[in-house]
C-alpha cells in the first residue's frame, strides 16, 4: 500500500485527524468527545501512516522502538490517572473529586469549561493510545 497516492493522501489526512482528535479532546468534558475517542482517532491516524509509510520509517523518525514508546505512553497515562485522581485526597476530598474553571471565550471554540478531569482524560488518552498501538504492533506482521 505504500504507493504515492496513499502517501500523499495520508500526509494531508493524518494532520486533519490529529486536529479533530485535539478538538474532541478539549470539548470532551461537556460535549461529545473525550480522552478515549480522541485516542482512538489518534491511533487511526497513526495506523494510516503505518499503512502509507510502513512501520520502519516511522520508527526511524521517532528514534524510539514502538514497544518502548507504547509502554511508556501506557504507564505515564496510568500514573497521570492515579496522580490526578489522588490530588483531592491530599485536599481531604474523595478520590476523583473534580474542580473546574470557565475560560473566557476563545476564537473558534467558544466558551470552554476546563475541569480537573481534563488531566484525568489526558491520562486516559495516553493509556488508550499506548495500549491500542501495542495491539496494532502485536497483530501487524
Amino acid at each position: 500500500m505504500t504507493t504515492l497516492i496513499t502517501q500523499t493522501a495520508a500526509r494531508i489526512v493524518a494532520p486533519l485527524i490529529f486536529v479533530t482528535a485535539a478538538i474532541l479532546f478539549i470539548q470532551g468534558h461537556n460535549s461529545i468527545g473525550g480522552g478515549f475517542i480522541s485516542a482512538v482517532l489518534i491511533v487511526s491516524a497513526i495506523a494510516l501512516l503505518y499503512i502509507a509509510y510502513g512501520t520502519s520509517d516511522l520508527t526511524r523518525l521517532l528514534n524510539i522502538s514502538p514497544s518502548t514508546l507504547n509502554r511508556r505512553l501506557l504507564v505515564s497515562g496510568l500514573l497521570l490517572i492515579i496522580i490526578t485522581g489522588s490530588v483531592p485526597i491530599l485536599l481531604n476530598m474523595p478520590f476523583l473529586t473534580q474542580a473546574f474553571l470557565i475560560l473566557p471565550p476563545l476564537p473558534f471554540l467558544g466558551e470552554l469549561k476546563i475541569s480537573g478531569a481534563i488531566l484525568f482524560d489526558l491520562g486516559v488518552l495516553f493509556t488508550v493510545t499506548g495500549s491500542l498501538l501495542s495491539i496494532l504492533s502485536g497483530v501487524s506482521r
Partner: peptide
Amino acid sequence: HSPVLPLLIALLTASLTLL
C-alpha cells in the same frame, strides 16, 4: 480514605512494575 487505599496501591504497583 482507607477504603480506596488498597485499590490505589494495587494500581500504582501494577503501573510501576510495568515501567
